[in-house]
Design a protein around this nucleic acid. Structure first.
Lengths: 340, 340
DNA sequence: TTGTATGCGTTATCAT
DNA sequence: ATGATAACGCATACAA
């Protein structure tokens, strides 16, 4: 391994001058800098990051914790995180939290051991009570989800507003028997979308039946969605629309409908949430709420760096990014014959 | 920040003893170790990784370079990498190479600057001529793809064999006019699957028409796949089956077929490759070749560590993992009426 | 503008 | 079984 000392020798200067050149200090004479650079080139010298980190007391690494990055929703956000981090010369350490017991402890260690400078948490659950302890000591931002009342910046769409908008949209299409397919987890988004649904129904003066609500499992698995959707479709009179809180669940609802010989959207309207990749690959293309995943990732990185500089907590508030209702094929004007 | 020194003071021992305790040295008396551990606990001491890395000359970080980890195929492999790394107490630094110009230079730096101990490359192209330079200096393994003739371990399925198997399977279903939907890239898998296809046809004594081969773009995008599939379906007489080299492309072929009012598999058989998540969510469920993605990721990590210990290059050969042809709905016995 | 010297927090060598 | 101390490679305060 070639060190800064060897470069100094070859360039005929001191290590301090090499270091200064490396860090673009204006205090080094151009001619000298040139000599140093040549030595660096000749020796193929690359600064040792471990040493630099120790000295500077930083790692230039951002931790990203995601429940499961095989989920396209998360993977797009992670891509945004990675892209922005790259631009800012940071690296991203990605950890799947799902399936790793006490990922919390590990997470803690990463920050405390100076392996990472800050952390972005995707999919924070409301029971992340331990989060507060770290949020005051390290730059942490919550992305997509957040723990209400926690002193920790976050970025997400307005889940309540988006749900309200979508359900209102369905009502304008003529639907009144609108069911909802949620999930059995503690995400704030799950709760807010449910509230948006309920308020939209209330505002329209529409009564909602208990049986119009069903839940998939915590991770929105396709199979659990199918099962829940089947229950919804067995209700009499059958709902004419199903508002799903994820695209996968919408796909599962469509699948369940087709099993029953129902046509979507002819006999049943189905809407998704997130607008992940495969929403426009097979018919019916999904009508859904698009989230600016990539942008959310980028924003999260900005917030981390902000916390890093301003001594964290500077802007410990929610950054809301715009969502968009995208109309495709899976939702249609209520077919009167189904109205019965 | 609390350091090893403070722990030593509190426990009434020297830093050496604390360090030994930390590293489970048998040379420390149980009673002493206990005192040290209590001090660590009381002070909430966490070892500084930067210092440790500098001293030990390692980072316990593995670099994973993927063209695009929003691709479920890659993301599953990355999950496997992450899982195995976690077990071995390594962290994984994931970088998207696509869209980042000179990702190569950056990659180089990561290893040379001791930011990472080794690297796993997903989606190596055949024009990665620079790879060899690093492969002899650092532990590097190629996953999924590999550069032929390169002195660098790799893990992948037998792409040639899998293609041969699938096309033979289609022939056994009665198909003779079998088209192929490939991609315009330099992946070895692309080439080997093409060869497997051609050999299967030759072995069956089936002539293949030039017009039976079409290419999607380099990244297997859905839109480009649709376009290529349309060309294939315009050929007279129309192929009765399309062998696609990715599931997305299979989906795009099905989509193109449906545009023409063709039923899959009634009027046209379509097969995919990889067996990613959404192959069994919408009908027709895809008949495809499943790859043990998670396992491939895990194996890659093993190989890296192996290189780390044995002074690399120890086993610079290809590790082939088993694939599996999974029969679902998109491929069926040739319908005689289509035979015309 | 450049050089000298110190310290960042560990681990490991050599004593004891 | 434990302690003192010298690296590890770099950045910077202070001198010159």
């Amino acid at each position: 391994m070639v060190t800064i000392e060897q470069v100094a020798q070859r360039a005929g200067v001191s290590v301090a001058t090499v270091s200064r050149t490396l860090n673009n200090s204006p205090a080094v004479k151009p001619a000298t800098a040139q000599r140093v650079r040549e030595a660096i080139e000749a020796l193929r010298y690359v600064p040792n990051q471990s040493a630099r980190n120790l000295r500077r007391n930083e790692s230039r690494v951002i931790l990203a914790l995601a429940p499961n990055f095989s989920n396209p929703y998360y993977s797009h956000i992670l891509t945004g995180i990675g892209d922005r981090a790259w631009e800012l010369e940071y690296s991203v350490l990605i950890c799947n939290t799902l399936g790793h017991a006490n990922g919390e402890r590990h997470f803690l260690k990463m920050l405390e051991s100076h392996r990472a400078d800050g952390a972005i948490l995707l999919g924070c659950c409301q029971d992340y009570d331990w989060l507060g302890r770290f949020a005051e000591g390290f730059p942490i931002v919550q992305c997509c989800e957040y723990v209400p009342g926690l002193e920790c910046p976050s970025v997400s769409i307005d889940n309540y507003g988006a749900a309200l908008e979508m359900v209102t949209y369905l009502q304008n299409l003529g639907h009144e028997r609108i069911a909802m397919l949620g999930a059995d987890n503690q995400y704030i988004s799950t709760r807010l979308r449910r509230e948006g649904y309920l308020d939209a129904m209330a505002q329209a003066g529409l009564a909602v039946s208990q049986s119009w609500y069903a839940q998939a499992d915590a991770v929105y698995s396709f199979a659990s969605g199918q099962e829940a959707a089947r229950a919804l479709l067995a209700v009499e009179p059958r709902p004419t629309a199903i508002f799903c809180i994820s695209d996968i669940l919408a796909l599962s609802a469509i699948s369940a409908a087709q099993e029953l010989g129902l046509n979507v959207p002819g006999d049943l309207t189905v809407t998704g949430f997130d607008d992940v990749d495969y929403t426009a690959m097979v018919h019916p293309y999904l009508t859904t709420v698009a989230q600016p995943c990539h942008e959310m990732g980028r924003r999260s990185v900005e917030l981390i760096l902000n916390g890093l500089q301003c001594g964290k907590g500077a802007l410990a508030d929610h950054a809301f990014v715009p969502h968009q209702l995208v109309e495709r094929e899976s939702a249609a004007v209520l077919n009167p014959t189904v109205m019965i």
